[in-house]
Amino acid sequence: MRVVFTANGRRVEADDVWEGESLLYVLRERLGLPGSKNACEQGECGSCTVYLDGEPVCACLVAAGQAEGREVRTVEGLAGEDGLDPVQQAFLDAGAVQCGFCTPGLLVQTHALLERDPRPADADIREALSGNLCRCTGYEKIMDAVRLAAARRAGEGAQG
């Protein structure tokens, strides 16, 4: 079947999609958007997290056909014209990236957290990231990165 939706603001079309295929497979293998990672294919690791109509979801658990006509935003769509999103920059600056496999999902999930709650407490951060597994960092640098991103965003807001 053909599936048509919006990915990172751009209309995309995928042909010959198998009806049982996941959105993750379509993004990675058919649309050249390999940022979202495939690690578990069962919703456990969060490395495939993307926005679907503004909500972060596991792309491996969305049937390709369910994305028809909807808006998807992946890690590739976070950076703007003028460079990295503050969340991405904070992950770099805080050293929250080691092998980087979990990073795309964490970036999208953190982005979604800060959109909803610009000043999360540590417990809120842990709760928001509870579906994103990282085998390298031990999570402390990730916590630092989220705090840093929140602080920078708040700073920007204060400056206007």
Partner: peptide, 18 residues
């Protein structure tokens, strides 16, 4: 899809239609 897609991804189920 949080139950169904796991079954499809792992080839545990091949229904004729979704």
């Amino acid at each position: 899809g949080t139950d169904v897609m796991v079954e499809l991804n792992f080839d545990r189920r091949r229904p004729p239609a979704l």
